[in-house]
Amino acid sequence: MIRFEDVIVQIGDFQLTVNMTVPKGFTTVIGQSGAGKSTLLSLLSGHRELTSGKIFVDGTRVDLLPPFQRPCSTIFQEFNLFPHLTISQNLNLVCGKSFFVSDISREKIKRVLEKVGIVELIDRLPSEISGGQQSRAALARVLLQDNPILLLDEPFSALGPNQKSELIELVYSLSKEQGITVLLITHDPKDAKQVGGQCIVVKDKKALGPFETSEALKKNGLLKGYL
C-alpha cells in the first residue's frame, strides 16, 4: 500500500498536491499532458524531491531514501536500456555489482527473458531489436529487480495499438503472478479500460482518487471532459 501524506511539489509556477492511499494491484494514472502524471511517479521513484509531505510504502517512510533504495522499479518513456550494452549486459546491471556477466547471472537473465518471450535476443544490442522487444527487455529487467512496486511512465506510447495492448496485458498478468503493485501512466482512457482496476486522475493541480476505473470512465464520471 502506498500512502501520500499531504504531499506538495512546487516546480516554478507548477504545483501538485497529493493526499491519497493507493491500494495494491493495478492502478492507472490518467490526466492531460502537463497535468503532473510523470511528476507524481517521480515523487515516488525518488527522481524528484517533495516540497513538503511524506510518502509511505507499507508503513515505511520512503521519501527520504535515494531512488535505488526505494522499493520501486521504473520503466520510462525512453532511455530504458543502455544502447551500447547487449540485453544480457543491460539486465546484468540489476543482478548484483559485477564487472562481467557471470554464468549464474546469465541463467537468471535467460529465465526472466523466457517469461517476457525474447530469450533468443539475449545477446543483441537494443538497436538490433524492435521497440516492442525493447519494452519487453525493460520489463524483464524490472522483474529481475524484484521490487514490490512497478512504475510505468507511458513506456509503450511509441508502439502501435496492438503491440501496446499486448504489452499492457503482459504487465498485467506478470504483476498478478508476482504480486506487484503497478502504477501505469497513460493519456489514453482505453488503456485504463483494458485493465480495469483503480485509476488516479491528475487534474487542476491535484492527484485525485483512486477511483474505480469503470466509474471514472462513465458518461458523467470524473473523466467526462477528458473523454
Binding site: 525518488g46 527522481h47 531512488p67 535505488f68 520501486c72 521504473t74 532511455f79
Partner: peptide, 8 residues
C-alpha cells in the same frame, strides 16, 4: 534517471 533507478 535509469542509472539511479537501478542503483548503478
Amino acid at each position: 534517471n535509469l542509472s539511479h533507478s537501478i542503483g548503478l
